[in-house]
Simulated assay, not measured.
Amino acid sequence: MTDRVGFIGLGNMGAPMAKRLLDRPGGLTVCDMRPEVVVTYTDAGANAADTPAAVAEHAEVISIAVVDDAQVRGVVDGPDGILRTAKPGSVIAVHSTISDATAEELAGICASHDVEFVDAPVSGGAPGANRGVLAVMVGGTETAFQRVREPFGAFADLIVHAGPVGAGTRMKLARNLLHFAAFTAATEAQRLAEAAGLDIAALGKVVRHSDAVTGGAGAIMLRDTTAAIEEGDFWLPILSHARDLGEKDLSLAMELGERLGVALPFAELAIDGLGIGLGVGTGPIATKKRTGGSPA
């Protein structure tokens, strides 16, 4: 039996996600505070509901894509919330990035109503949602995960069971740590390039092109542990090579920055932590920088 799906919150992310559910068998019921937004979906055959509680009357799997923890709480357990009418065995899935503690708390409340709760934040942005290629990180029981995999497949081509409730959110926070730290590093690279008289728009084209080929930072995220790599391990020569190349290029960038008078704090952190983070220890260049001696 195909679960009927409800979708609450038709904003920048929710709108393209919900649109990809329109052609899915089982029917779609949508809800948003802005009636004019809902018309697009009802014109395409979806049902409209005025409140989250009304959505739960017509759906067994209910997705939520609102702004923050407070809105999620209201949608789930407010006076007109989903739990007022949710049928036992229903699954509530929150795609908003909220606190993992909030997710765990709401899971407990839902359990008292015999309703499953999953935190299911997404990665890939609105372009990914429009193309149906989002990544979804699901925190919840195995039973709930199996229930949501099929409907989530309408807007995602990677659906990961991160662990129990809260794990999906924790994975999203780790992913976004990389995302926004990389943005900050990119601004540092732009400052260096600009001081060197380069076209930083052209630099951006080069970065996007090469990252699409190499996988960017995710290319080194292949091990199942962050522990130090032992002798004889398959990854030791590969990541040692990555460290040595990285330390060389970072040191050259830092020398350029020094000549141009551009502070590069991210580069300083990177050269100190790259080898250790990769599990292979500092290389000769970083060791020399730390000790002021000669490379081993």
Rank of each mutant, 00 (worst) to 15 (best):
V75P: 00
P88C: 03
Y41P: 01
K87P: 00
G11A: 10
S99N: 01
V122A: 15
I62P: 03
A53N: 05
A101T: 14
S112I: 04
V39M: 09
V76P: 06
V91D: 05
A54I: 09
G78Q: 11
D69K: 11
D32P: 05
G14E: 12
S90G: 07
A53I: 08
D32H: 13
S63T: 10
I64H: 10
S96M: 10
V61E: 01
G26R: 08
A101L: 12
F7K: 13
M17K: 06
L28D: 06
V61W: 05
M33C: 02
G125I: 09
V72R: 10
A59M: 14
A103S: 15
D114I: 01
A44I: 11
L10D: 09
V94P: 01
S63W: 15
F7P: 06
A56R: 02
V67G: 04
G108C: 05
D119N: 02
A48T: 13
G9N: 07
G125Q: 05
P16I: 07
V94I: 10
D68E: 13
P127E: 02
D114M: 04
G125T: 08
G125K: 00
A120W: 01
V118I: 14
A56C: 05
M33R: 15
P35Y: 10
D50S: 15
D77Q: 15
A49Y: 08
E57M: 09
V115W: 03
L106R: 02
D80V: 14
A107V: 00
A44V: 12
D114W: 03
E57V: 13
D50E: 15
A120F: 01
S90F: 12
T102M: 08
D23Y: 06
N12G: 06
G128R: 09
